[in-house]
């Protein structure tokens, strides 16, 4: 891959950020508020009526502790599980944490999680997402990427 100078400077910036981040994680307690907007999972016209719902999750980071609180409504069937996954925006990835979820079509999502330094970094890089699974949509019904709240 040939690097254009813009890409290169992006790279330099991101290395710089990464270093800052690593040092700050170790030096001072990281804090910040994040949000995930939950919306129906990849839908096709055929599944518009069977993959439904919406929700919002607020995440607050203190050091490596991530407090997760959220709610959701209007799913097509009862929730079965909710997870934090690791993947860059719009690219599915593995589960990294379990969340508590109301086993109904609407309800609450909560957890207090200890993140690894890598996961804190992933959080800052928009590389975490939340997914809610349901009885009739085991692969997932609601999904939302976690972004810093502004």
């Amino acid at each position: 891959m040939k690097l254009g100078h813009k890409t290169f400077s992006k790279l330099v910036t991101s290395i710089a950020c990464t270093l800052t981040l690593v040092f700050s994680v170790n030096a001072v307690a990281q804090s910040g508020t994040f949000r995930a907007r939950l919306s129906p999972m990849p839908t096709t016209p055929q599944t518009v009526t069977t993959i439904t719902g919406e929700g919002e999750v607020i995440l607050t980071l203190e050091g490596n502790t991530l407090k997760v609180t959220g709610d959701f409504v209007g799913m097509n069937s009862a929730a079965t599980m909710a997870h934090v996954h690791n993947g860059p925006p719009a690219q599915p990835g593995p589960v990294v944490h379990q969340l508590e979820v109301t086993k109904m079509t609407g309800g609450e999502i909560s957890a207090v999680l200890e993140l690894t330094d890598e996961q804190v970094m992933a959080l800052h890089n928009n590389e975490l997402y939340i997914q809610v699974h349901s009885e009739t949509n085991p692969p997932g019904e609601l999904r939302g990427w976690v972004f810093a709240r502004n």
């Binding site: 907007r37 919306s39 129906p40 999972m41 990849p42 839908t43 096709t44 925006p89 719009a90 928009n126 997402y129 999904r143 939302g144 990427w145 972004f147």
Partner: peptide, 12 residues
């Protein structure tokens, strides 16, 4: 075959 979804980070 395709599936569509909201663009992450756009708040819908």
């Amino acid at each position: 075959s395709r599936k569509f979804f909201e663009m992450p980070g756009t708040d819908g």
